[in-house]
Amino acid sequence: MIIINQFIASYNYFIIIFLMIAGLYIVVARGNMIKKLIGLSVFQTSVYLLYISPGKIIGGTAPIINDNYTLYSNPLPHVLILTAIVVGIATLALGLSLTIRINEEFNTIEEDEIFNKEEL
């Protein structure tokens, strides 16, 4: 019983870890560049959850000050992640533009084929 309660109390961490290793696996195992970028963004999104979920207090509300509420969730991780999301899209767009240039140069976006063409 205690083990089940422990599991439920840490369920968010387990899902975060699963998303993280899934992102890592996609980045390492797949050769397609767009797939790699999606894996990278999955990894990044799991970090958002890792920051935000400990900031939640059960019974608290969103950190917008109002006389009717006294308990708020922690605003600091929200700020950090807000900036991280927008930086994330900027770097993702940069990666996609590099992918487009690679495709124009090598006519492929698979890693193995690019290595083969470079050796020739």
């Binding site: 969103a62 917008i64 807000l82 900036t83 999301i85 927008v86």
Partner: peptide, 12 residues
């Protein structure tokens, strides 16, 4: 200033 929002969201 009063609710969810700001420059990033509005820009996007």
């Amino acid at each position: 200033d009063f609710g969810p929002g700001g420059g990033f969201q509005a820009g996007v």
